[in-house]
Structure formats: C-alpha cells, structure tokens
Simulated scan of single mutants.
Amino acid sequence: MRFALLLFDTEGYWEAVSPQEMEAALAEHAAFAEYLRAKGVTFSGEALHPSKEARSLRPSKDGVVAADGPFVALREELAGFYLVDCAGVEEAEELARRCPLGAGIEIRPVWEVP
C-alpha cells in the first residue's frame, strides 16, 4: 500500500532561511532517505516550489478558469512529499515520525487505480 507523506512548512519559510539552515535541512532529508533505504522501503520524493508559484484550475459557469496561487489560502504551504510503500497506515506513521517535521506532515493513502 502506498502513502503520501505531505510535508508542510510555514508560508515563506524557505525564502527566509540562511544558506546554513538550508544545508542543515537538506542533510536531514538525506538522512531520512537513507533511513528509508536501510529499512528497504520503496519511496520517492520531491521538494516543491512555494505556493505563490502555483497555478490552480477551477470550475466556473464559463468553463475551466486558471488562477495563480494555491486553491485555498493557508498559513502553511505544501513544501514537498514522499511516496512510500508500506504495509499499512501504522507503518506509514512510523516512517513519518522519522521525517523532518517542518510545520507538519499529513499521511494520506494513495488511491490505487485497478
């Protein structure tokens, strides 16, 4: 079963960190990736650009409308994610507890299309 570990950070956080803080954060994620490899967990992950660079598509009476920014205004933004293959939500939570936390992590099952 696959789970997305959705990583959230305070809006604007990554634009404000020093190069040393950025280097330390990247080292934490490298250590987490090594932890997953050592456990034999199949995974992938990516960091995302800030939500201010996002574009959303929304339905309207005139059809699909594009809008800059995230779908909803949040104090936190989705900063990145890992996709992990686990036995169940308990294992996904166990893995997420080892992941660098930021403002929070949402553990969400991935819809498996038959």
Rank of each mutant, 00 (worst) to 15 (best):
R58G: 00
P70T: 14
R75S: 12
L5N: 00
F43M: 10
L83P: 13
K39R: 15
E90Y: 04
P19A: 03
R2F: 13
S44D: 12
E34W: 13
E90S: 08
E93S: 08
A24I: 00
P50D: 02
H29Y: 07
R98S: 07
P109F: 07
P50W: 05
E93M: 13
V72G: 12
M1T: 12
R55F: 02
V72I: 14
E90P: 06
A54S: 14
A25G: 11
D9Q: 11
G88K: 03
G69F: 14
V65W: 01
R58C: 02
D9Y: 08
A30L: 15
L101I: 05
L6N: 09
C99F: 03
G63D: 09
R98V: 02
E112Y: 06
D9F: 03
A38F: 10
M22K: 02
S44H: 10
A92N: 15
S18V: 12
R37W: 11
R58N: 02
C86A: 15
G45P: 14
A96Y: 06
G69E: 09
S60I: 00
R108A: 07
A103H: 02
L26D: 11
S56H: 00
V65M: 14
L83T: 15
R37S: 14
D62T: 14
E11M: 15
V65N: 03
L5E: 00
A27Q: 05
H29W: 03
S51C: 15
P114W: 06
A103E: 01
E28M: 07
V89A: 14
R98G: 01
V113W: 10
V64R: 00
A67D: 08
A4P: 11
Q20I: 02
L6W: 02
E53S: 06
E106V: 01
